[in-house]
Design a protein around this nucleic acid. Structure first.
Length: 603
RNA sequence: GCGCCCGUAGCUCAGCUGGAUAGAGCACCGGAUUUCUAAUCCGGAAGUCACAGGUUCGAGUCCUGUCGGGCGCGCCA
């Protein structure tokens, strides 16, 4: 491809989309009373501390001890040292006694300058397990976002180009952010702002006008289009008249005139969308709206007029711009119209954001777009600010790091590229090999291989903080051991297997004795944190928080079930452990679903 | 040149609004399977948290500077 940019340049050098159904059997957002389990304990501790210290409860920070052996929660006494004019360890020792009297079921122990709290194991197990079983699939969800709308612009590839690994990030991250907000009761609108407009399509239409007869667009059209695009670029260098032709074609397109150019463009869009959807389907991604830049075509004039009417525009070197240098000397101007009168990326983004505001009155409008475009969004926000729109703050660029293939940027032209389809195919094929090795008798092994292969790819992309750059490495993506998606899926499958066996053996009917789950305290504490994790991840738009949480939960769980046997114990013990298994499976499954990874019951 | 982002074990990464001896995975060494999937678990070895200052009772975490890497800087998207 061309050296050119993508619609929303992905984390590489090009860009495209997906959705949330397959996977998202959307979180049901019920249970308005859904208690944040750990909050039950933390609130009590905080209240007791308020009582004992006189500090306002919002100033009391209850944290987790470094070492879990110390306790479940901790309160550092340093801030009290000044007020009380005593050494922190002395304060801790003094407070511990008082706290113990006021916190039935929670033990307070002074350790140096800290007070560590340990919840009674039976109380912990009962509270967490019952809370989860009670809320079932609604566990972790809430209604805190009810009545608020979040618009999420993600994936947004350019049409007429193949999707490559660089397009994965926006798609996967955006879809996950949408699911997290769904879980919190927000109304979410996932928008695929596909790149179906701009001078590049002038080029493509001109190319088709010249050589289109040689094309077979019905079968596998994208590579053919790509070749055409590249050819146009090459010949353009020798013959500058091609550039004029392309410009003329885009001008005609943007004029709205019906005719050959417009027909060609329509056909391109349809063909491309069909291809894109194949990938989205495999990734389990869907959109509420597929609105390309062309959707805003009819609004461009009024958009420019609207900005002009606020008096902040000017003409610079023949182009219509908003000068930003008085705001920040370092900032280049924002271009709204080229010398030839046509619009730019920014113009269309303004049209889109105005339209979205009018349609949705969003709480937040998130742009899941590569960090490379920081300047673009910064300029956009400053223009909105200068227009004195009071909703500027709701517009946020959710940026993420670039994906590179070893040296330098990806370049379709130079063949330095990994196509998305190839990546998915290889991952699935690798999964197929491993499935047949590890579990030759598995019934639906082909389905499982698809789930595991794709799961590995998605999880790999989401486990790191999104701002970090990624150097693409086949060995890393195709790894199914250690901190990977398949590891989490495997943990889920084994828990499912235990439940299946219990069912078959008719075990678990007895009344559970939760006092027997003390060995599982780390798991219970982790399970109880889940609702908080979702909330935090959504607020930060950071799927890696969920991925990291799942890894640590799975570590605890795997370690536990390698030590403790569930089936065939005393009935009350088996029942208690089965309940724990049920809870862990539920949370792991739900966490994976938020990431867009399918949780298999067997693999 | 200017601006933004990143810099934690050999490699890839965690480390919540600054808090108690910096945690995982991979790779390496050594163990665990007549019982719920060994895609697993347990143990060992491995770090001057890029460097230098500063703020603080306390800094991997905040501030400044330096170095290294990435990205961006008007008629592309």
């Amino acid at each position: 491809m061309a050296p050119g940019p993508l619609s929303r340049p992905t984390a590489s050098s090009d860009s495209p989309t997906a959705s949330r159904d397959l996977h998202s059997a959307q979180l049901q957002t019920r249970s308005p009373n859904s208690l944040f389990v750990m909050l039950v304990f933390v609130d009590r501790i905080r209240a007791a501390l308020t009582e004992a210290t006189g500090l306002p409860s919002d100033q009391i920070r209850v944290e987790q001890p470094r070492d879990a052996a110390l306790g479940d929660f901790a309160f550092p006494c340093f801030p009290l040292a000044k007020v009380k004019r005593a050494a922190p360890p002395a304060i801790a020792a003094e407070l511990a006694g008082e706290l113990n009297a006021n916190l039935p079921g929670i033990e307070a122990v002074a350790t140096g300058p800290y007070i560590n709290f340990r919840v009674d194991r039976t109380l912990l197990a009962t509270t967490v397990v019952e809370s989860i079983l009670d809320q079932d699939s609604a566990f972790g969800t809430s209604q805190e976002g009810a009545g608020k709308t979040i618009v999420i612009d993600f994936s947004s590839p350019n049409i007429a180009k193949p999707m490559h690994v660089g397009h994965l990030r926006s798609t996967i991250i955006g879809a996950s952010i949408q699911r997290m907000h769904d879980a919190l009761g927000y109304k979410t609108v996932g928008v695929n702002h596909i790149g179906d407009w701009g001078s590049q399509f002038g080029k493509l239409c001109a190319a088709i006008a010249r050589w289109g007869d040689e094309l077979d667009l019905d079968n596998d059209p994208i590579p053919a289009l790509l070749a055409l695009y590249v050819r146009y670029h090459e010949e353009e260098e020798a013959d500058p008249s091609l550039a004029d032709e392309a410009r003329a074609a885009f001008r005609e397109l943007e004029s709205g005139a019906e005719g050959k150019i417009r027909d060609t463009w329509k056909r391109l869009t349809e063909l491309s969308l069909r291809e894109l959807n194949k990938i989205y389907e495999r990734l389990g991604v869907s959109f509420d709206l597929i609105r390309g830049e062309s959707f805003y075509e009819s609004m461009l004039d009024q958009t420019v007029e609207r900005i002009e009417s606020t008096g902040i525009t000017s003409i610079s070197e023949g182009a219509l711009v908003v000068d930003l240098s008085e705001f920040d000397k370092k900032l280049p101007p924002c271009l709204l119209r080229k010398t030839d009168g046509t619009t730019l990326y920014a113009t269309r983004d303004f049209a889109a954001v105005f339209h979205r505001w009018e349609e949705f009155a969003f709480e937040r409008c998130l742009y899941v777009v590569a960090a490379q475009q920081k300047l673009h969004f910064r300029q956009m926000k400053i223009v909105l600010e200068r227009m004195q729109l009071d909703w500027v703050e709701r517009v946020e660029h959710i940026d993420f790091g670039m994906l590179r293939l070893g040296e330098g940027k990806m370049s379709t032209r130079e063949g330095k590229i990994v196509f998305l389809e190839e990546l998915l195919d290889r991952a699935v094929s690798e999964a197929r090999t491993i499935v047949s090795e590890k579990n030759p008798d598995l019934a639906k092994s082909a389905d499982v291989a698809e789930i595991v292969g794709i799961g590995a790819v998605i999880f790999h992309d989401l486990k790191k903080e999104r701002i970090k750059d990624v150097v693409f490495d086949w060995n890393e993506v195709l790894s199914f051991e250690g901190e990977t998606g398949p590891y989490v899926q495997y943990t889920h499958a084994r828990l499912a297997s235990i439940l299946r066996k219990a069912e078959a053996l008719g075990e678990g009917g007895a009344e559970a004795d939760y006092s027997r789950l003390d060995e599982a305290a780390p798991i219970l504490l982790a399970l109880g944190r889940f609702p908080d994790v979702i909330r935090s991840a959504a607020q930060h738009c950071e799927p890696s928080e969920i991925a990291q949480y799942l890894l640590s939960l799975c570590r605890e769980t795997s370690s536990w079930y390698s030590r403790e046997r569930v089936l065939g114990q005393e009935p009350s013990l088996t029942a208690a452990r089965l309940s724990l298994v049920r809870c862990a499976k539920l949370v792991i499954g739900k966490g994976l679903q938020l990431l867009g990874v399918v949780a298999p019951d067997e693999m």
